[in-house]
Simulated scan of single mutants.
Amino acid sequence: MSSTDVHALVGAYALDALDDLERAAFERHMADCAACRTEAAELRETAARMADSTWSVPPPRLRTEVMAAIGRTRQVSPAEPGAPQGPARPARWRRYSLAAAAALVLAAGTGATVYAVQDQRVRDERAIVAAAQRYEARVQDILSAPDVVVRTSPMRGGGKVTVASSASRNAGVVLLGADRPPAPDQAFQLWTVRGTTPTSAGVLAAGEGSAVHIVDGLPGNSGLGVTLEPAGGSATPTQPLVAQVPLV
């Protein structure tokens, strides 16, 4: 193996693409070649950084673009001075280098995709946190309103429902806490009652036995009821009511 061949194995070595004999030969060479040691370390660090994230599938077009680039790349170098002329044939080390380059391009594409996915995930999580903070701030605003009126009613089967209503905020906060949560295929549903007309005011998650829920427009209603419904809620209340809180 010539000196040129040995130097060109650095990319394949960084990607663990050498057989045992070639790896041993390159490591002997690298012991005396500072340039190859540096290049191998840099290539391995780059590959490690690209892989140090949750895997994400690169765009389908990336493989096509890489293969097209390979087809346009000249793979046979000019003959060395004094070398015998013969049919042009890619040297093995050049195939290794080409494979290493293609692998690094694919890894770069994957790294960019992973970054985009993780960046979107961070933005989504921040949006969820921000929404929760706004919701909590509004709950506190209603509960601390100077005209807030608090009423409580027991729940059938144990537990209680507390309603804090503020006319100045035109909203109320419902705090529901059941001693026993509903079955996984059932859910508590809230209803505002104006006269004799019930209107759905929200459905808890299936199997959820406690919640803090804001009901806009609650003041002016005559009462708030709680029923046990199939998961997802019902169009009309199922009797009997689990709880009923008079508001007037």
Rank of each mutant, 00 (worst) to 15 (best):
I142M: 08
R156G: 11
R169F: 12
L176G: 00
V148R: 05
V148L: 07
I142D: 01
T199V: 06
P184S: 13
S165A: 15
T152W: 06
A145Y: 06
A171W: 02
V149T: 15
V148S: 04
A167P: 13
V161S: 05
Q140H: 14
V203Q: 04
L175M: 09
R180D: 12
S165M: 11
P154L: 09
V148H: 05
A164Q: 03
A178V: 06
N170F: 12
T199Q: 09
A187L: 08
A201K: 00
D179L: 08
V150D: 10
R156A: 15
A178S: 15
S200Q: 09
P181V: 09
L176C: 06
T162I: 04
V149P: 07
Q140E: 15
D141A: 15
V203D: 01
S144K: 08
A164H: 02
T197V: 10
P184C: 13
T162S: 03
Q189D: 04
R194H: 07
T196L: 10
S144T: 10
G177Q: 09
N170W: 12
Q140G: 13
V174T: 03
T196Y: 04
S200H: 07
K160I: 03
V148F: 05
M155P: 02
R169T: 10
A183K: 14
G202H: 10
V174I: 14
T197G: 03
L143W: 09
P146M: 13
S165H: 11
V148M: 05
S165Q: 11
V148C: 04
M155A: 13
G195V: 07
L190D: 00
A183L: 14
A167N: 14
R156V: 13
A187M: 07
R180E: 12
V161E: 08
P154F: 10
A164S: 15
L176T: 00
T199N: 06
L175Y: 13
S166V: 14
I142P: 00
S144A: 13
R151C: 06
S153W: 01
K160L: 07
R194C: 05
A164D: 00
G195D: 04
A178D: 01
L190Q: 01
P146H: 13
V163W: 01
A145M: 07
P182K: 13
R194M: 06
L143K: 09
Q189Y: 02
R151K: 10
V174A: 07
R180N: 14
D147S: 12
W191N: 01
S166W: 11
T196P: 02
T199M: 08
P182F: 11
P198W: 01
R151F: 06
S144Y: 07
V174R: 02
T196S: 10
V173W: 01
W191G: 00
W191C: 04
